[in-house]
Design a protein around this nucleic acid. Sequence first.
RNA 1: GGCCACGUGGCGGAGUGGUUACGCAGCGGUCUGCAAAACCGUUUACUCCGGUUCAAUUCCGGACGUGGCCUCCA
Length: 480
Amino acid sequence: MELRLYDTLSKEKRPFVPLDPVNVRMYVCGPTVYDFAHIGNARPVIVFDVLFRLLRHVYGDKHVTYVRNITDVDDKINARAARDFPALPLNDAIRKVTEETERQFHADVDALGCLRPTVEPRATEHIAEMRAIIEKLIAGGHAYVEQDHVLFSVASDPRYGTLARRSLDEMMAGARIDVAPYKRDGMDFVLWKPSKPGEPSWPSPGGIKVEGRPGWHVECSAMSWKHLGEQFDIHGGGIDLVFPHHENELAQTCCAFHRDRMANVWMHNGFLQVEGEKMSKSLGNFVTIRELREGWAGYAWPGDALRFAMLGTHYRQPIDWTAKALDEAHKTLWRWYGDIEGVQAASNVADDVLAPLADDLNTSGMIAALHALHKAGRLAEMRAALAFLGFSCDLPSLQRKPVTAELRTSEASDQVQMQGTAAPSKQQIEQFISERTAARAAKNWKESDRIRDELAAMGVILKDGKDAEGKPVTTWEVAR
RNA sequence: GGCCACGUGGCGGAGUGGUUACGCAGCGGUCUGCAAAACCGUUUACUCCGGUUCAAUUCCGGACGUGGCCUCCA
């Protein structure tokens, strides 16, 4: 099966050829751990999880290395730590914030059916590699020291701007801010900066006497180098990272190691909006994964439904996150899970499902293929395909719990609290149904309907049908 | 202001230089005590204006619209 992927750098879709088929290497920019991840953050996590699964399928589980970093050194983390734990020394407070947020992040993405990456490196554990890269850049004339900062010189890299497709002139023309006094060129960016008292700090590179901390971009160059090498296969992330983050990573890595390329394929997922608007805290439409799982648009949504809703749109397209689409996704999965309950999964994943995925992760086409399998009654293959794609196939856990009010996520809440009506036991339901069947046989429609309504009030839906011999049979299911 | 992406039927959303996407909703039907469910069938499309072409939703140019990026915000 030929895998084709769209590359942001060359702007074309082309066959994927790994540098080393025995070790296919992918790096995806992970979270900065200072707060709950929002649904926009969930998109790359889900998209690249699907790619990870596909690569494992093609090259073998042991032949794919997926690295997704955790950024645990950042101004926002510092600010959050100072705000939430004012009594603690800053470094202790920072550790509390990053550890707690990392735990929340893992709980959320686990619920979304995402496999853990092969390696989840932390920025603070790769300071030595960052310093090494910075020293190489200084030695190579690509970086300079000024006022205890180390800056990358964009003028030293003729390729700078090729990923984002913009020239330095354009960027200078569009720059709207004052250039910091320690910069030789307005577009130069910080590799290392001095720490303020109390802030996390490490010995500085470049002969700088005072301690400092890394700039934003260099961590990914360091961690991808350490775990994947100077050059690797796939680098992914949100499209908002193309500039400046990925452009700068590319420049750092290529200049430090004298390489033409950093990653062979650059992949970027499209942006996410909520109900047609940009997601922002000021608009009040900021949606975290945790809120979706606890209570959003009237329900606590199972992770499978969130995952399915996300895959309904091709990863490069913009996606509008709406309650309607989520409801539709849930409904589809609900029906499928009901139909494949108790079905033994096929041993292979159907080519019908793999083929669209292999075409630059065409998940919409993949879902259409699943619909076709469903329609054709190929349920064993359906189950195998869904499991392959990271879906639990577990009907009970797919139930969405109604919530009466929109719950706000608090920092303290790490437990997903759900409220639901107490479901009657199977024996009770069967008892009701046999009573109703008797009432129907006696044409006592009033009693029959009363029982049906009563069960409906308890969240049990009755489905009347006939068996092979034409006798009336009533089955039931829990309301979704 | 600069750069980039996107604009498909009631809704969501693929794809293609000429031939059914798919799903949801709707409509019709089968079934049913009624309803639901299930199953069968089915209507509606490619933002606008030019150009290339035998032929454009698909390629090119422009307009309009939406969104993204342009800062040591991630």
